Simulated scan of single mutants.
Amino acid sequence: MKEYKVVQPKLSFRNRLQSMEDNLNQYAREGWNVINIAPNWSNIVLEREKNR
């Protein structure tokens, strides 16, 4: 079974791309996979196996 998470990144104007990369890498370490990123980066949908 899968579980999903929708996150709204809080990004500063400085180092925006580095901050996004750091956040995505942290989610990846927790087992999350990116399913969708909204065109304006307003939200990101993540998925992972629930019974891991």
Rank of each mutant, 00 (worst) to 15 (best):
E30D: 14
V34P: 02
Q8S: 15
P39R: 02
V45Y: 05
D22K: 14
R16V: 09
V6I: 15
V7W: 12
Q18E: 09
V7A: 10
S12H: 08
L46C: 06
F13D: 03
W32M: 09
W32I: 05
L46N: 06
E30N: 15
E47H: 08
K2E: 15
P39C: 02
L24R: 09
E21T: 15
E30R: 14
R52F: 13
P9G: 09
P39T: 00
K50V: 03
N15I: 13
N40G: 05
I35N: 06
N23H: 14
E47D: 08
K2L: 11
I44L: 11
Q18H: 07
L24G: 08
R52H: 08
I37Q: 04
A28Q: 09
N36R: 12
S19D: 10
Q8C: 14
L11W: 03
N15A: 15
Q18Y: 07
K50G: 07
Q18G: 07
N15C: 15
R14D: 10
Q26S: 11
Q26V: 06
A38P: 00
L17N: 08
I44R: 13
E21I: 10
N25I: 00
N36V: 02
G31T: 04
E30G: 15
K50C: 10
M1F: 13
S42Y: 10
S42Q: 08
D22P: 03
E47A: 11
E21W: 07
E3D: 03
S42K: 05
A28H: 04
V6A: 13
W41H: 01
E21H: 14
R14F: 15
K10S: 12
R52A: 12
M20R: 05
E49W: 02
Y4S: 01
V7S: 12
N33I: 10
M1R: 12
F13H: 01
P9E: 06
I35F: 09
R29N: 11
R29K: 12
E3F: 09
R16G: 04
K10H: 14
I44Q: 09
N51M: 12
E49D: 07
K10W: 07
Y4F: 06
V7R: 13
E21C: 12
I37N: 03
E47L: 14
S42C: 10
